[in-house]
Simulated assay, not measured.
Amino acid sequence: MDTTSRPALGELVYRDAVEADADALVALIESAYRGDSSRTGWTTEADILEGQRTDAQGVLAVITDPGSRLLTVERDGELVACCQLEHRGDAAYFGMFAVRPGVQGGGLGKLIIAEAERLARESWQAREMHMTVISVRHDLIAWYERRGYRRTGRMTPFPYGDERFGIPQRDDLQFELLLKEL
Rank of each mutant, 00 (worst) to 15 (best):
G35T: 09
R154M: 06
L28V: 10
G107D: 12
A46I: 01
R39V: 02
R75P: 00
Y33D: 08
M1Y: 14
E19S: 08
S123V: 05
D21V: 08
R88H: 06
W42L: 15
D16F: 14
L108P: 04
G148L: 07
R170Q: 06
A81V: 03
A32C: 14
T43Q: 11
L108W: 08
G51P: 08
R154Y: 01
G41W: 00
L49V: 06
G10W: 10
R39Q: 13
T152D: 05
G41M: 08
R69K: 12
T152H: 07
G107E: 06
R39D: 13
E181D: 13
G106K: 11
V18T: 14
L70W: 05
D2N: 14
S38K: 08
V103D: 07
Y33K: 12
V18Q: 12
R147E: 15
Y14S: 09
V73F: 03
D2P: 15
R147M: 15
T64V: 03
R146P: 03
R147C: 13
T132K: 04
R69T: 15
G89E: 13
G51E: 09
C82D: 14
D172K: 00
G51N: 02
T4C: 09
V133Y: 04
W124K: 06
V136E: 10
T3E: 12
Y144E: 04
T54H: 05
I63C: 11
R118L: 14
M155T: 06
D21L: 10
K180Q: 08
G89C: 10
P168Y: 12
L173V: 01
T44I: 10
I63M: 03
Q84C: 00
Q104G: 07
D172P: 06
G106L: 14
V99P: 06
L70V: 05
F165M: 01
L108C: 05
E115L: 07
L111A: 13
A46M: 00
L108G: 02
A81W: 01
C82L: 08
I134F: 00
A24H: 07
G107R: 13
T64K: 13
A114M: 00
S123I: 08
D47E: 15
L108T: 08
G77W: 03
A22M: 07
R164D: 08
E45K: 13
T156M: 14
D23P: 02
T156R: 14
F97W: 03
R164H: 10
I134L: 14
A24V: 01
L12Q: 15
L12T: 09
Y93M: 04
F165W: 15
L140M: 13
M131F: 05
V13Y: 04
L173G: 02
T64S: 12
L178G: 07
L177Y: 03
L85H: 00
S37F: 02
L70F: 12
L60S: 06
A46G: 00
E115S: 02
E163R: 05
L12W: 04
L182V: 10
I167L: 10
R127V: 01
L178Q: 12
V13S: 12
F158C: 00
G67A: 10
A20G: 05
A92V: 11
T40S: 15
G41L: 03
T4W: 04
P157C: 07
Q104N: 09
T4K: 15
R121M: 08
R170L: 06
L70R: 10
A24F: 00
I48V: 14
G166P: 03
L111V: 13
R75Q: 13
D36C: 02
R127Y: 02
S135L: 01
